[in-house]
């Protein structure tokens, strides 16, 4: 089973390490404008959230591509074949989440490709706001609730 991203905005500290490591993995440079993950800050609400492609099971980008340049790879990532892509940008318009971008600098479209199976954004995220996990394992939010129940109702000795 492919792993999937879990985003925890409450843990995001706005450090943008994800943007740095995403761009470095793909370009060998630190260039957040070419990162497939972007952190958004909401100052008044005192929160922030990293947003990236969640690799839709019913991917609009894949369906809309007129030259079949977009496909799903073995890791479950929806990827763009740069050789086939004609940069028509239909996928940019089609993505309901805005997770495909066009770079005026490189004249290419780009999106998250899960770094071939081990996404650098999750690997380097210092706070656990971006996690890349096996969905068949017990999700931590459920587990956290269970642990809360344990703390409230449990009889375990502290030692």
């Amino acid at each position: 089973m492919s792993k999937q991203f879990i985003i925890k905005p409450e843990k995001c500290v706005s450090c943008r390490t994800c943007e740095l490591m995403c761009s470095f993995e793909h370009t060998k440079k630190f260039i957040p404008s070419l990162s497939s993950v972007t952190v958004f800050d909401y100052e008044a609400a005192m929160t922030s959230a990293p947003i990236m492609c969640m690799q839709c099971e019913e991917a609009c980008c894949l369906k809309v591509c007129p030259v079949e340049a977009i496909s799903r790879d073995g890791q479950g990532a929806v990827v763009i074949n740069k050789d086939k892509c004609i940069v028509c940008k239909m996928c940019v318009s089609a993505c309901p989440l805005g997770n495909i971008s066009f770079s005026p600098a490189t004249k290419k479209v780009f999106k998250c490709d899960l770094c071939g199976g081990s996404p650098k954004c999750a690997e380097f995220c210092p706070s656990g706001a971006i996690q890349f996990v096996d969905p068949t394992e017990s999700p931590d939010r459920k587990k956290a609730v269970a642990e809360h129940f344990k703390d409230v109702f449990g009889q375990e000795e502290l030692s």
Binding site: V13, C15, R16, T17, M46, T47, P126, S127
Partner: peptide, 19 residues
């Protein structure tokens, strides 16, 4: 304390968002 925060590229995250 509402949450803690980091500066650019930081994993220490000492900043306090407070209300």
């Amino acid at each position: 304390l509402v949450k803690n925060k980091g500066c650019f590229a930081c994993s220490i995250d000492c900043a306090r968002v407070t209300r």
